[in-house]
Amino acid sequence: MEAYLVAIAIIAAIYVLLTLGLTLQYGLTGLVNFGHVGFFAIGAYASALISMQGMPLVVSFVCAAAIAALAAYPIGLVALRLRDDYFAVVTLGFSETVRLAITSEKWLTNGVQGIPGVPKAFAGMGIGMAGAVATLAAIALACGVAALMLRRITRSPFGRVIEAIRDNEDALRALGKDPARFKIQVLALGSALAGVAGAFYAHYITYLSPDQFIPLVTFYVWMAMIMGGVGRVSGAVVGALLLMLFLEGTRFLRDVAPDLISAVDMASVRLGAVGLALVLFTLFRPQGLMGDYTRR
């Protein structure tokens, strides 16, 4: 049971990191990024491949963040000229392109067969619980640092400008500030967080394949953000934990009513539960658990 809880906590923390990235991009800046999972995938594969060349994990993690951020740069240059809705479509297309590239470039990624045997984080601590707990501690620390960083940003002049972008981009341009310059930084930093989340994922699951990086992951992150409260750093944390509660909690439905739900139906039941939660949230608490950006 403890092992199961630690495992869930690790996955939840990975979602917290992803949600923090999206909170910066959408919640604070208004960038409709439907391709978050693409940067998660880039981080995961980058860290896995680099560490399998014998590099220490510290190096591979830094590379994962940097490569994911760099990948955001060209898409930023191209896509930020587009209107919001087109930007959403382009980012969705980008993440699917990443997945197809992973599927096709077998020389690098081993295609659909995937990469087994990614080095486990804290493998030196033996095969028991110690390694998993250490991983959890590390990722919790990463979440903490990321949350503090975001809080610092929201209280800075930079945070003021990106919120201004969300409210009215043209007004900002009229005052002599280029929204694109800020959006690219936001896109890169949010993607770096997704990249780090990917690295944690890779070195925890230890097996990577393209079907782990489908758009559904992006939408889980969106759900977490919406449930927690758009534009709130605390909302990102609470929302991701809540998402995990729904995803994992539905598992226990079978314990309660084993005859009602077959194992095959489980996946659909989970999705249905999350969907229902989202509908209820939009109906009864549209601002999310922690309130949204119309806070004042």
Binding site: E163, A164, D167, N168, D170, L172
Partner: peptide, 10 residues
């Protein structure tokens, strides 16, 4: 602007 474009949340 003719129609004010304030940053409404700020």
């Amino acid at each position: 602007f003719q129609v004010p474009r304030e940053f409404h949340h700020l």
